[in-house]
Structure formats: structure tokens, C-alpha cells
Simulated assay, not measured.
Amino acid sequence: MKNAAALSRLQPAVAPAAGQSASVADLSTRDRVTQLLLERGATTAGQLGSALGLSPAAIRRHLDAMLADGDVLARDQTIRGHRGRGRPAKVFVLTDAARGRCGTHHYDNMATAALRWIARNGGSTAVEAFATDQVAALETRCQAAMEDAGDDPLARAEALAGALTAEGYAANASTIASGGQLCQHHCPVAHVAAEFPQLCEAETAVISRLVGTHVQRLATIAHGDGVCTTHIPTQPRRVQSAKTVTTVRTDR
């Protein structure tokens, strides 16, 4: 993102703030690595570490993870003219897949910057109100798709999974020993929700109201888990307010 928010991502990495998970910090650092590679092209680990204020061991850890995820490629550095002894240094470049995803970061970072402005000027209550307003339309559409689902929470969870999949969440529901489980394999706002968990909390409240029972969010993509997982206990249908939703953080 070519604006102040994007420039802030190039600042040296710092320790996670109180309450922030290591996985969220890792995601933020890898975003900055991606931004540098996008702007500079082929870059050595040493150059990346110096730009981000990271130790050689720390930058290697991030690059190894990005290599494993298929986000970067490593190749020998091209040396023009006389080359000294020893093997040439490795340089890292973005893969085509990672480069193609960079366009979405522009909008993610704009949304993050907007929420930071709301938080500075209106406080956490304003952020919560914004998050609730954003999921209201989603709740209305899913509710319409669940009109024939009946009153059983597990049957409603299955109907909700279908409605969420139609919205791009790649969701599915299953029955487990203690009730049901709703899994979302994609989160359109994961990058933003990593900093503003109010988005996840508002979505969890919507799930609770739609299935008609208390639910418990066990994992979220925004906080480093592979899937957003919501537990739905077996109990009589009753409409819940947002205040009764339980979210269990699984920060690593």
C-alpha cells in the first residue's frame, strides 16, 4: 500500500505489544518482508534484516517459513565483474503467487488505517460499533438463507455453513461429541482482524444469534490458526445477545 500505513510497515520490528500474540507479530513482520521484496526485488537475508532491524537468526526464521509456504524463492546472487572466493550469497524474491496477492494488501491496509483513526478518535466503543455495523448486512443475508433450517442449533449451523460458503468463507459444519462445530476455512478480513479482534467478536455474535444458542470461538485465522473454529454446544434454542458470546483466544 503506497501510503503512510504502508510506510509504517517498513519500520524496524519491535516486540509484540501487551496482549498481542507471537503469531500476529510474525504475520506483521512477514508482511514487511513482502513489502520490501516487492519494492526492491532480489534481496539478501542480510539486507532484509538490516532494513527491518532483525537479527540474522530472526530473519532466517521468517524467510524459512515463507519458503515453506511458497511465498519466496531463493537463488544465487548474480555477480557482475570479478567475483571473490566462496559461494555467492543467496537472494530472495517473491513468487508469482505472493506478488499477485500484494494488490489485496492495499485495501487491507487502508481498512486498518481507517480503523486506527476510528480508535484514536472514538475509542474502542466506536471500533465495536463499526464492526457490528459491518456484519449487519451479512447477518441479514444469512438469516434469509436459513429460513427453512428449523430450530435445532446443529441443523441451523449446517444451514449457516452453506450461507457463509456462498459469501466466500468456505465453511462447513460437523457434529462432535459435545455438540457441533462450525469451521470457516477462509476469512476475507483476517489481515485487519489480526489487529482489531472486534471484527471477530462481532462475527461470533452473529453466529450465536443465527444458530440460536451460546457459542464459543476456539480458533481464528486472524490470530494464526489455520481455520476459524466455533463450538456450538447442544442446548435448547434461545436468542443470545452479543454480550453472551464467549471467545477463547488461542494465541501462540
Rank of each mutant, 00 (worst) to 15 (best):
R40M: 14
M66N: 10
P56S: 08
A42T: 07
P56Y: 08
D64A: 14
H62M: 03
A58N: 07
A65K: 14
A57N: 09
L67G: 12
A74C: 08
R75N: 06
G70T: 13
H62Y: 09
A65W: 03
A51I: 01
R40W: 15
H82M: 12
G49M: 03
H82A: 09
D76G: 13
A57G: 05
G41C: 09
A42D: 12
S50Y: 00
A57S: 11
G53M: 05
A45T: 00
T44R: 07
L52P: 00
R80T: 14
T43S: 12
E39N: 11
H82D: 08
G41L: 06
G81I: 05
R80P: 04
A45S: 10
L54M: 11
R61Q: 11
D64R: 12
P56L: 08
R40L: 15
R40K: 15
T78N: 11
A42L: 07
L63Y: 05
Q47H: 06
H62V: 02
A74F: 08
I59C: 05
A57L: 09
G70S: 12
I79Y: 10
Q47A: 12
P56R: 07
L63A: 05
M66L: 15
D71A: 13
P56I: 07
R40C: 14
S55E: 09
L36K: 06
A68S: 15
Q47N: 10
A65C: 05
D76L: 14
G46T: 13
D76T: 14
S50Q: 09
G70Q: 11
L54D: 01
D71H: 10
R61T: 11
H62W: 02
Q47K: 10
L54V: 01
Q77L: 06
T78A: 15
L37Y: 04
G70N: 12
D76I: 09
G81V: 03
G46H: 09
T34D: 07
R75G: 12
G70P: 12
I59Y: 02
V72L: 09
A74R: 13
V72I: 15
G81N: 05
T78V: 15
G49L: 04
V72A: 06
A51F: 01
E39P: 01
H62G: 00
H62E: 13
L38K: 05
A45V: 00
A68K: 15
I59N: 02
L54R: 03
I59G: 02
I79M: 10
A42I: 03
G46W: 03
Q35W: 00
G49E: 04
Q77F: 02
T43V: 04
L38W: 05
M66Y: 10
A45Q: 01
T43E: 07
D71Q: 14
T44S: 13
R60F: 08
L67T: 14
L67V: 11
V72S: 06
R40F: 13
L52F: 00
Q47W: 00
T34H: 12
A58P: 00
